[in-house]
C-alpha cells in the first residue's frame, strides 16, 4: 500500500470517477423514479402518482414485451451447451483448432446492425435460405421466417444465438486453457475416459465461469437486445418481437411520454438490481465454502 501524508490524496484520484459515475448513472437512476410519477410533456409535467405504473401493468403490450424477453432467455442454456461442446472439442487441440477458433470468432466481429440486416434479407420468404431449401426439395420447410408472427421471435432468437454464442465459446475455451493440465493427465493415466474427464474434472472447475456467463447473458436477453429487434422488425410482425427496450424507446420517441418510459426503466432497473444481489449472494456463499 502506498501511504500518503495527505489523507485526501486518494480522493483526488477517485474524484473524476465518482463525478463521471454520478453523472451517467447516479443522476439518471434517481431521476427515473421522479419522472415515473409524472406525466412528462417535453421536459416536465404534473405529478400523477402511480398512474404510469398502473397503465403499463394493465397494458397487454407490456405483458407481451416481458414475455418475449423471458422467451429469449431460452437462448442462454442453448448457447451454454453448444459452446461447451465446441470449446471442449477445440480444447482437445484437434488439428486446425487455431484456425477454427479464428473463424468461429467472425460473427462477433460483425456489428449487430450488420448481422440483423444481412440475416433479415437472408430469411425473407423469397430469400436465399428458402431458395436453398427449395433447391434441395425441402419446400415444406420453406416457412415465412421473418413474416409470420408465430415464427419471428424464434428467428430473432436464432440470430441472437448465432452471434452471441461466439463470446461464450471463446470464454469457455479461455477458461479451459487455464485449467490445471497435470490433473487431467493424471486422471488419464488413471484410466479415466473422455466423458469422465469432462464430467468429473473439467466441468466442476468451470462452475464459476458458467455462473458468470449465466448472469451476464441473462441481463443481455432481458435488456440488451435492442439492436437486433430494432433492425430486424421493430417489434413486428404484429407484436411478436416487441421487447422492453423497444417499448421504452417507443414511449420516449414515438409517443413522447418520457414519464411512462421512465416507469418501465425503473422496473427494469429493479429487476437487474435483484439479479446482481443474487449473484453477489451466491458468490459470497461460494467464497465462504471455499474458505471453510
Amino acid at each position: 500500500m502506498i501511504r500518503t501524508k495527505n489523507p485526501l490524496l486518494p480522493y483526488f484520484f477517485v474524484a473524476p470517477l465518482v463525478l463521471l459515475l454520478l453523472f451517467v448513472f447516479g443522476y439518471p437512476l434517481v431521476q427515473i423514479f421522479d419522472f415515473s410519477f409524472r406525466r412528462i410533456r417535453g421536459i416536465d409535467g404534473p405529478w400523477v402518482g402511480l398512474e404510469n405504473y398502473q397503465l403499463i401493468l394493465n397494458q397487454p403490450l407490456f405483458h407481451e414485451a416481458v414475455q418475449h424477453n423471458v422467451q429469449l432467455l431460452i437462448a442462454v442454456p442453448i448457447i451454454l451447451i453448444l459452446s461447451l461442446i465446441i470449446a471442449v472439442i477445440l480444447y482437445d487441440r484437434v488439428p486446425g483448432w487455431r484456425i477454427y477458433r479464428t473463424i468461429v470468432f467472425i460473427p462477433y466481429i460483425l456489428a449487430v446492425p450488420i448481422v440483423a440486416v444481412v440475416l433479415k434479407k437472408f430469411f425473407q420468404y423469397d430469400g436465399p435460405f428458402n431458395e436453398a431449401l427449395r433447391v434441395v426439395g425441402l419446400d415444406l420447410f420453406a416457412l415465412d421466417w421473418m413474416g409470420s408472427p408465430d415464427l419471428a421471435l424464434w428467428t430473432v432468437l436464432s440470430v441472437i444465438i448465432w452471434r452471441e454464442i461466439v463470446f461464450c465459446i471463446v470464454l469457455m475455451l479461455a477458461r479451459l486453457l487455464s485449467l490445471d493440465e497435470e490433473m487431467l493427465e493424471a486422471a488419464q493415466l488413471d484410466g479415466a475416459g473422455w466423458w469422465q474427464r469432462l464430467w468429473f474434472i473439467i466441468l466442476p472447475q468451470m462452475a464459476g465461469v458458467i455462473e458468470f456467463y449465466f448472469v451476464v447473458s441473462f441481463i443481455t436477453m432481458i435488456a440488451a437486445v435492442f439492436s437486433y429487434i430494432f433492425m430486424i422488425g421493430k417489434g413486428g410482425p404484429g407484436t411478436s418481437t416487441m421487447v422492453l427496450e423497444l417499448y421504452i424507446f417507443n414511449f420516449l420517441t414515438r409517443s413522447s411520454l418520457p414519464g411512462v418510459a421512465s416507469a418501465v426503466s425503473v422496473m427494469l432497473f429493479l429487476v437487474t438490481t435483484v439479479l446482481i444481489l443474487i449473484l453477489f449472494w451466491v458468490r459470497r456463499g461460494e467464497r465462504e465454502q471455499e474458505l471453510a
Partner: peptide, 11 residues
C-alpha cells in the same frame, strides 16, 4: 381468397 402475394409479410 389467396389474392395477396406470399412474400408480403417479409417484404
Amino acid at each position: 381468397s389467396g389474392f395477396l402475394n406470399d412474400s408480403m409479410s417479409s417484404l
